[in-house]
């Protein structure tokens, strides 16, 4: 990698997380905040790491920051500001809410990155598509980003796909799993301990969700450990419009918690907000 551009990292720490009701980077997993964990993983390999912050963020940070250039630039605003900060660098863009992100995953990405391509990333373990939560963008991506944003487009994943990135399989499948709410951290804790175990489940959707899912009832194979993990998997897969906190999970015709373990052959139902009367 002698001819490679200098490596810098941009951590997407998010704004005040609405879902957690608090700063998601400050969420604690195994005794450390998510931000501390991710910094401890990346700074040995990429010492120059910045936190991506909103245009008007007035909080104080212990790490250098890169501020969005405009208010509400969308999910690609951080990368735009990073290339503005240093257009000659290759930028690793990384979400901070990845509790099981590890140095193997980072080393593998840096080792296999192809500096002649615009980007190198991992395949999402569930849908195999390019995953923007951990991607190395080469300087050549900056121009493409300017054009993409000029077209008023904002989707980080579609932008990444438009670059025709090098896509790698994940060495550790859970490394890029989001954990930005307590139920997901619980899910990841179990998965990390017990591993991914396939089970067949039947899911019935009600109300609005029944119109959004491909069918009102489906039987599928999942590796989710809890009902929260299953819902998040299906929410992403079917583009369901409702967040976990507005949906009620039902297991074997009983209301249960999101943290309830998912048994083999589970009969699950997801209930959107009720609207009687």
């Amino acid at each position: 990698m002698s001819s490679s551009p200098p490596l810098k990292a941009l951590l997407l720490i998010g704004g005040k997380s609405q879902r957690m009701g608090s700063d998601k980077a400050a969420l604690v997993f195994e005794g450390k905040t998510l931000l501390e964990r991710i910094l401890a993983t990346i700074t040995p390999l990429i010492p120059e790491a910045y936190l991506s912050i909103a245009h008007d963020d007035e909080r104080e940070f212990s790490h250098p920051t890169i501020r969005d250039l405009t208010p509400n630039p969308g999910p690609l605003g951080g990368l735009q500001a990073a290339f503005h900060h240093d257009p000659e660098a290759a930028w690793l863009v990384l979400a901070c809410d990845l509790p099981l992100f590890d140095s193997t995953t980072l080393e593998n990405l840096l080792d296999k990155a192809d500096p002649t391509q615009k980007a190198t990333c991992y395949r999402n373990r569930l849908d195999q598509r390019a995953e923007p939560l951990c991607t190395l963008y080469q300087p050549a991506a900056a121009h493409a980003l300017t054009n993409y944003l000029a077209d008023d487009r904002r989707c980080a994943r579609k932008f990444l796909e438009s670059l025709e990135p090098v896509m790698l399989p994940l060495p550790h499948p859970l490394a890029l799993d989001n954990g930005n709410r307590p139920e997901q951290l619980h899910e990841l804790t179990i998965l990390a301990k017990e591993g991914l175990q396939e089970k067949e489940v039947t899911v019935t959707y009600y109300g609005k969700l029944s119109a959004e899912a491909p069918a009102a009832t489906e039987t599928l194979t999942t590796t989710a450990a809890t009902l929260a993990g299953l819902y998040e998997e299906l929410r992403l897969k079917h583009y369901l419009s409702l967040d976990l906190d507005t949906v009620k999970p039902v297991l074997s015709d009983e209301f249960v918690d999101w943290t309830t373990p998912l048994p083999e052959d589970a009969q699950v139902a997801f209930l959107p907000p009720f609207a009687g009367g």
Binding site: G207, F274, G277
Partner: peptide
């Protein structure tokens, strides 16, 4: 009870509008 049935009974409403659109509430 009217309020409780509205908020806590697992029932969903699918509205059909005159303009042909529909909505779940």
């Amino acid at each position: 009870l009217a309020l409780q049935l509205k908020n806590r009974l697992p029932v969903w409403k699918h509205e059909h509008f005159a303009d042909g659109s529909q909505d779940w509430t």
